[in-house]
Amino acid sequence: MSSKMNTDNLLFPTPEGLYCPIGDFHIDPVRPVQRALITHGHSDHARAGHGAVLASRETLEIMRIRMGEGFCRTEQVAMPGETIDIAGVRVSFHPAGHVLGSCQIRVEHAGTRIVASGDYKRSLDPTCAAFEPVACDVFITEATFGLPVFRHPDPLGEIRKLLASLAQFPDRTHFVGAYALGKAQRVIALLRQAGYDKPVYMHGALVRLCEFYQAEGIDLGELRVAVEEEKADFRGAVVVGPPSAFSGVWMRRFADPLPAFASGWMMVRQRARQRGVELPLVISDHCDWPELTATIRDIMPGEVWVTHGREEALVRWCELQGIAARPLHLVGYEDEGDA
């Protein structure tokens, strides 16, 4: 068991993000730094302009797709499970089950092990490698859905709701709002898993990421772009697009659209109502409450640090279980867009 002194010296929050002074690197920094270790490709974790970037091969590819060549000066691939030495600090990447390429980062020095999990989930997702529990002294967990109200249902059951609605309203375009990286591909993969074999239309913002997923061997079936000029008949079609397209002029081309939204937030009715969602689909790429608490029980770390989300409830739960825990106040991470 490490002392609090050791762990705090190894990794602590700074305005740029989580910082390791011994190895002189940041994890998921929100501002440009010399050396960045990136857990996954969501824009609040992966930003352009760093010196050196260490991340999984898939995350580096995703960053290139989203930010273009030259998103950093030098890049290095972290192979899953491989240990890399950075100025005496031993670093390794392990699957986090969040989106394609997402990893937890394990940082070890002088016998003290900290795992920064980034964003993660435990439920089955055919579009990315599953979360691996990694033994550690300190487990840094997200708490996006860190309240007992979040118990996400079986995602396939949610997709069946979409299919039922398509059968009931065959003339309405079913527009599914889904974050461009990870959620959109998962929704499409789930549709295929549920036996939906018609073409799925996608917003232009999704094209390159979907192509990348397919190139990585994830079968998404036939995809078509919902092109602006084309006056195609979208009646009864499924169109997947980023949530921001809900309020944009892009939506107007569809006949009597039925807005659906794939997100863990859809658990709470008021959230759906505020966004004008008619068909909420509770599909999350973050842990729900039972997964968060089960993960902490699985790993049984000496201490839990809780970041972005509803820290206080998870800290309270740890207290009740006799596990040391505290909130870690990191700034700059969205708690909504990608959930």
């Binding site: 309240l147 007992p148 109200v149 709470v268 206080e312 409830a313 309270r316």
Partner: peptide
């Protein structure tokens, strides 16, 4: 934990 939940929902 119930209070946190109720406050949120």
């Amino acid at each position: 934990l119930f209070r946190y939940s109720y406050d949120y929902v």
